[in-house]
Design a protein around this nucleic acid. Structure first.
Lengths: 115, 115
DNA sequence: AAGAGATACATTGACAGGCGAGGTATATAC
DNA sequence: GTATATACCTCGCCTGTCAATGTATCTCTT
């Protein structure tokens, strides 16, 4: 089953930060990594990807620099900042809280009606 | 920690359906049930609640009828349909898929950089 | 009797994130 | 030469959320 992007909403920035926690990367690469990690079940749309990078940079969570490619298309690399690392930790905790709450609420439907 | 409603987005209808799986209910009551179940960590805003009921009814997932209260404010009761039950099952599965994917992607950030 | 607070429903307009569609440019393979 | 992959970017629409506002009823306190 592929992933409903409705349900990913609000997590895209955290997902990107998680990738950058492992080291610098550029947009296209980050998205391919996500695609591969999920076995093709999910990938960010380009418009979503690049606007998320913009927001993260505006917020000071990441900084960017152009790669020195002598061949092929230019690449804009991103590096996570201390603020970004802190933000990643916080967002991950928030996700875990939300996850537990949703799990609990959706499980209510399994109780059925006793009559 | 309270729940970031950003992260609930896309699950409100499923949460409502889960409540109605247990039996008919009206808006205000459903929301109070959610509030109590989560220990006050989460409740739907009224505008969100009622627009979600509208969407569910338009989609044929629920049907509504006015209660016969002889006292107090009028209540609009909702009843889940077969389509609604089917929809609940599907949405729950979609949630579980999304949950696993997000868990995996966010865990990536724990790998750190090896240098 | 007046006022506050809880119950209960509903609508409007604004906002934010996601995304389809379109664009630019380089390199490789056939 | 043209198709495919890489790599970036922006505009405008869509959808779900929500603050604000409105209606009406009941109960409790003063």
């Amino acid at each position: 089953m592929s992933v409903a992007s409705e349900l990913i909403r609000g997590n895209t920035e955290t997902i990107i930060l998680a990738q950058l926690m492992k080291g610098d990367g550029y947009g296209y690469m980050v998205n391919k990594a996500i695609f591969n990690l999920t076995g093709g079940k999910f990938e960010l749309k380009e418009a979503t990807l690049y606007t998320a990078f913009r927001r993260l940079e505006d917020a000071g969570c990441i900084v960017s620099y152009w790669g020195d490619e002598t061949t092929g298309a230019r690449r804009r690399y991103y590096s996570i900042t201390d603020l970004g690392r802190e933000s990643y930790r916080l967002r991950k905790k928030e996700w875990e809280t939300a996850e537990a709450v949703i799990d609990k609420l959706l499980a209510e439907g399994e109780k059925g009606v006793s009559k």
